[in-house]
C-alpha cells in the first residue's frame, strides 16, 4: 500500500510543541539565560530549514526523527554562536540566594530544590552527545532508531550514549543524596 503523502503544514501541527520543548531544554541546560528568549527563533530556524529540504525527503522517512536531527544542529549552532557553555550555568550558590530573597521555603522543599539543581548541573556537565541522547530517550521519549537518526549515529552508539549518561547521572545523584542525608 502506498503511504499517504504528508503535507509540511501537518508537521508543524504534529511536532512543533515537542521540538520547541527539546530546543528550549537544550538551551536551558547549557546556558544561564532563560530558554524562552532564544528558543522561538531557533525553533523557527528548524522549520525553515526543514521546509527547504522537505521535497527531497523520502516519503517513507521518519519525519519526527528528521526534525530532531535539524533541531539538534540548529541548537548546537546557536549555542556555538552565543559561545555559551555549561560552565556559564547558574552556580548552586546563586540559586540559594534566590531562595533566600523569596519567601522562605519549608525545609523539605529546600532539600528537594537542591537535589534538582544538582541533577541539572550533572546533566549540563555531560558530554554533548550523551546529554542529547539521554534527553531524547528519557525526556522527549524517542526510540533508539529515532535517536540514531537525530544524532546521525548507529543505533548501538545511541544506546551506548544513553547508557553511559544514565550511569553517570545515577552515580552523581547517589553521591548528592549521601551528602544531603549528612553521611
Amino acid at each position: 500500500m502506498a503511504s499517504i503523502p504528508v503535507r509540511f503544514e501537518t508537521l508543524i501541527e504534529s511536532y512543533h510543541d515537542e521540538i520547541y520543548s527539546y530546543v528550549w531544554r537544550l538551551l536551558d541546560s547549557a546556558t544561564s539565560a532563560d530558554g524562552t528568549v532564544e528558543a522561538p527563533d531557533v525553533t523557527q530556524e528548524v522549520f525553515m530549514r526543514a521546509y527547504k529540504s522537505f521535497e527531497r525527503l523520502r516519503p517513507d522517512s521518519n519525519h519526527r526523527a528528521w526534525l530532531y536531527k535539524i533541531a539538534t544542529h540548529c541548537t548546537y549552532t546557536a549555542l556555538k554562536h552565543g559561545q555559551r557553555r555549561a560552565q556559564h550555568s547558574v552556580p548552586l550558590e546563586d540559586e540559594h540566594e534566590d531562595l533566600a530573597g523569596a519567601d522562605p521555603l519549608p525545609d523539605g522543599l529546600v532539600v528537594q530544590h537542591e537535589a534538582l539543581a544538582m541533577v541539572r548541573r550533572s546533566i549540563a556537565a555531560l558530554p554533548a552527545k550523551q546529554q542529547m541522547a539521554v534527553m531524547l530517550r528519557h525526556v522527549q521519549g524517542l526510540d533508539y532508531a529515532e535517536i540514531a537518526e537525530a544524532l546521525e549515529c548507529s543505533e548501538d552508539s545511541a544506546r551506548a550514549n544513553v547508557y553511559q549518561a544514565v550511569r553517570r547521572l545515577r552515580r552523581e545523584l547517589a553521591k548528592a543524596q549521601r551528602v544531603q542525608e549528612g553521611e
Partner: peptide, 23 residues
Amino acid sequence: LEELRNAVRAPSDEGVAQSRRQV
C-alpha cells in the same frame, strides 16, 4: 527517571504557544 524528568525543566505553556504562533 522520575527525578531526572523533574529536574529537567519544561517550557511554559505560554512560551510554547508563542513559538507555535511565530512558526
